[in-house]
């Protein structure tokens, strides 16, 4: 389990990184961020990239910046940055509540937020967060900059809208209204493992009724997304057990479940039902 040989490039600036990426992308060149997904895949020789563009020394990509409406997360920001709230907004608490479900402490020291998005594991918590909150993803290349809406970013299991020569330079998450409630729940068999289903929900209360509900679901389909059927079951209703159950049921029905050796379709729906309801309960 030793990786196949590759040429390593260590750009110091974004422009340099993009230039190298443009050069090597056609020869199976890839970005190396935290390496917490890429290196295992290379160890199994499931990937044998000929070039790696190591962005760990690129200046300026390591920042988390809030401008009052948007939180911008650079490509070198590690999971561990979110152990404590990064911004005085419910979003900061949301991110720090979610981050502890990602892998384990030593992996969070290295793995990056943007790397998770680019890797696009169906069960990635950060992918779920950006899908639920309709974040904007900023792709850069020597050809210029593209803003990609989260709902258009994920294309399938470990597949995204990024072109080979594009670097995911940053993720922009909308700050949340101060009265937003959120809940997160995920199911896995063993601590730190990828979730077999995960849900993030947010909503506000308008005169005691649910408004602007977002129900995000990860790990259940090829990529995370908002489940409009579940949101419809919530909006305008008073939060409570019956309503939450109805929303969870709607989500379980709406999905096109992923199947694998430990999870058939029926079981995946069971899990979806559970995580959506529990996320809603947590939010209440």
């Amino acid at each position: 389990m030793k990786p196949a040989p590759f040429v390593r490039h260590v750009p110091k600036t974004l422009d340099e990184a993009l230039k190298i990426l443009a050069d090597v992308a056609p020869q199976d060149g890839r970005v190396l961020a935290g390496g917490q997904s890429l290196v295992p895949i290379m160890a199994f020789r499931l990937a044998k990239p000929a070039h790696l563009v190591d962005i760990n020394e690129v200046v300026g990509l390591d920042k988390v910046i809030s401008d009052g409406t948007t939180l911008t997360i650079g490509a070198r920001v590690r999971h561990a940055a979110f152990h404590k709230s990064v911004v005085d907004n419910p979003l900061g608490q949301l991110l720090s509540a979610v981050v502890r479900h990602i892998a384990h402490y030593p992996i969070r020291m290295r793995g990056t937020f943007c790397g998770s998005l680019a890797h696009a594991d169906p069960a990635s918590e950060w992918c779920l967060v950006v899908a639920t909150l309709d974040a904007t993803l900023v792709a850069k290349s020597t050809r210029g900059e593209r803003l990609i809406a989260a709902k258009d970013f994920f294309a399938g299991i470990m597949s995204t809208a990024l072109a080979e020569d594009e670097l995911l330079a940053e993720a922009r998450l909308p700050l949340l209204a101060s009265d937003v409630r959120f809940g997160f729940n995920e199911f896995n068999r063993r601590a730190g493992d990828f979730a077999m289903a995960a849900s993030l929900v947010t909503y506000r209360l308008n005169a005691g009724k649910i408004a602007e509900a977002r129900v995000g679901l990860g790990g259940a389909e090829s990529f995370p997304r908002r489940i409009v059927e579940a949101e419809a079951a919530l909006n305008g209703k008073t939060p409570g057990d019956t309503v939450f159950r109805a929303a969870a049921e709607a989500a379980a029905k709406a999905i096109d479940p992923l199947e694998d050796h430990q999870t058939n379709a029926e079981y995946r729906r069971d899990l979806v039902r559970a995580v959506v309801r529990r996320a809603l309960e947590q939010s209440a």
Binding site: F44, R189, R190, A191, G192, D193, F194, H261
Partner: peptide
């Protein structure tokens, strides 16, 4: 074999 990694074959951690 479908369980050729320690993410698929699951020895317990301290948590379990």
């Amino acid at each position: 074999i479908l369980t050729a990694t320690l993410a698929d074959y699951l020895p317990p951690t301290a948590h379990e």
